[in-house]
Design a protein around this nucleic acid. Structure first.
Length: 228
DNA sequence: CTTTGGATCGTCT
DNA sequence: GACGATCCAAAGG
């Protein structure tokens, strides 16, 4: 590697395309603790949600192939980015094979590299409401830089221009890598956030106790049972 | 702490 | 014409 190689930390291996070929319900929890790299910025995935196709009324693919969701029907290992609420982007990893829709929504990252760039991308202008006075901070504690699907895109600089980017080749400047940290053996689970249908499906997973997980609340699907 | 409403526009009805 | 895989701040307790 060049002198610009990372100062510390284990090697990062690109996640192979076959990893994405499975069902989103299996790929989603396996994505936890993988690392999303975009230019000098990188973050560890700590919260995800699975979306499927014709059998998932909450999925953008539920009503069939459209220009917006076309990437969801394409080959696995690509990024599906959509625009919503008139102002936000959200990013998904495409699963399953070509012609079959499936994706995993990336809901939160733990910032690893390029944290200054993330702060800048998420900063409100000086004097804006909500900005802390006194110190030179640009407004957000690091745990809130990417603690939500739209915040994540803002922090990483992901926009609609990245829709369809290949996470394996990295040709679009975004790549998914494994730095040797395994997914949690027992991830936390709940229903998906922000939906009006299929809220009871336990298709949201996160790294238990991680402070970067979004504050969005999914329906509690498997309440802790009293032990005795 | 929780709840509520505004922002803002592509997509679908 | 309605609404969304959201975020943010202001208001209320």
């Amino acid at each position: 590697m060049s002198p610009a190689r990372r100062a510390a930390g284990p090697a990062r291996r690109v996640v192979p395309r076959r990893f994405y070929a499975g069902d989103p319900l299996e790929v989603a929890p396996a994505l936890l603790n993988k690392v999303l790299v975009g230019g000098a910025r990188a973050g560890r995935i700590v919260e995800v949600e699975a979306y499927r196709g014709a059998d998932d009324p909450a999925s953008h693919a539920y009503r069939g192939l459209r220009p917006r969701n076309a990437v969801m029907f394409g080959p696995p290992g690509h990024l599906y980015v959509y625009f919503t609420y008139g102002m936000h982007f959200c990013a998904n990893v495409v699963c399953l094979g070509e012609g079959v829709a499936g994706a995993v929504l990336l809901r939160a990252l733990a910032p690893l590299d390029g944290i200054e760039a993330m702060r800048a991308a998420r900063a409100r202008p000086p004097g804006a409401p909500g900005r802390r006075s006194g110190d030179g901070s640009s407004g957000w504690p690091d745990r809130d830089l990417a603690s939500g699907p739209a915040r994540l895109c803002q922090a990483m600089g992901i926009t609609g221009a990245d829709d369809g980017a290949d996470l394996v080749s990295g040709a679009g400047g975004i790549q998914l890598v494994d730095d040797g940290v395994a997914p949690p053996p027992r991830p936390a689970v709940s229903g998906r956030v922000g939906l009006r249908v299929a809220v009871e499906r336990p298709w949201r997973w996160w790294v238990p106790g991680d402070p970067n997980v979004s504050k969005g609340k999914g329906l509690v699907v498997a309440p802790a049972r009293a032990r005795r």
